[in-house]
């Protein structure tokens, strides 16, 4: 499995994905300038923009790397040669997943450091109203990473049943969009405002709420931007949710992938 992780990382680097991200990350340099235009809360705005940019890059990575990893191997017929080696299908899948997740983490660390430098620079020119709590900013990025690792797991699960890249890529995007609103929808249907919704709709929505990933808990942007404290037991619950959900997704993926015909 570690050999597969190594091969996966090598593949991503050789495909110049990392270089591409670094070029995109040059947009960081523009952020202080852009933020200054707003005249007020310049540092808060730069923090918002950098965190959003990191989030966006990670979304792209998890959709495209996660959604095409297995598909590429099957499409380019690498599976025949690799799965003929004494590797288990489960090990292979987990290695592929692990490599992609590790790359995402690496990107987040590098971008996080760059973002820190940019925001620190802005803060030195335009001192913010509240001091920046760097620990919370780091925590925010870390939970974003967890969120996208979960999304990669979703992409892998869809890839194990799909024969094209279309379904994994768009399925992952759809899951991402839906996962961002499930909490709101859930709260809405359990509020008096949804009185005239049919009970079937309510049950369906509740079912989806439990089935689809819930991304809102991973979102610590507001806390990071305004330096608000983060409740520890909430974080603990989110981590537990992440572990269980990803564990389930990967178990299903591994079970499906090991039964899949390579023809």
């Amino acid at each position: 499995m570690t050999t597969i992780i190594g091969i996966t990382l090598k593949g991503i680097f050789r495909d110049r994905v990392f270089q591409g991200i670094m070029v995109t990350a040059c947009a960081f340099v523009l952020i202080p300038g852009l933020a200054t235009l707003s005249m007020r809360q310049v540092t808060e705005l730069s923090l918002t923009l950098t965190l959003s940019l990191i989030s966006f890059i990670m979304l792209m990575l998890s959709v495209f790397l996660g959604g095409t990893s297995l598909w590429k191997d099957i499409e380019r017929r690498y599976t025949f040669s690799v799965l003929g080696l004494p590797l288990s299908r489960q090990g292979y899948l987990l290695g592929r997943f692990g490599g992609t997740a590790l790359f995402l983490l690496l990107v987040a660390v590098v971008l996080g450091i760059a973002a820190g430098a940019v925001v620190a620079f802005t803060a030195s020119v335009h001192p913010p109203d509240r001091p920046i709590v760097w620990g919370t900013v780091a925590l925010c990025i870390l939970f974003d990473v967890l969120k996208y690792i979960l999304l990669i797991a979703v992409a892998f699960l869809i890839s194990t049943v799909s024969t094209s890249f279309f379904l994994p890529v768009f399925g992952t995007i759809a899951t991402f969009l839906a996962g961002g609103v499930t909490q709101q929808v859930y709260e809405y249907i359990h509020s008096p405002a949804s009185k005239n919704l049919s009970p079937i709709m309510k049950q369906l929505a509740t079912g989806l709420y439990y089935l689809l990933p819930n991304f809102s808990a991973f979102d610590l942007k507001v806390n990071a931007i305004y330096g608000l404290p983060v409740p520890a037991n909430g974080l603990f619950l989110t981590v537990a949710y992440f572990v269980v959900y990803v564990g389930l997704l990967l178990s299903f993926s591994a079970a499906i992938f090991s039964r899949r015909e390579m023809r």
Binding site: I7, K10, G11, R14, D15, R76, R77, Y78, F80, S81, V82, G84, L85, P86, L87, S88
Partner: peptide, 20 residues
């Protein structure tokens, strides 16, 4: 996995990770 541990296998028209 054990059944593949002691053999050398060449697939038909093979393809290998081409970035390596």
């Amino acid at each position: 996995v054990a059944s593949r541990a002691k053999i050398g296998f060449l697939p038909e028209n093979p393809a290998f990770y081409d970035y390596l």
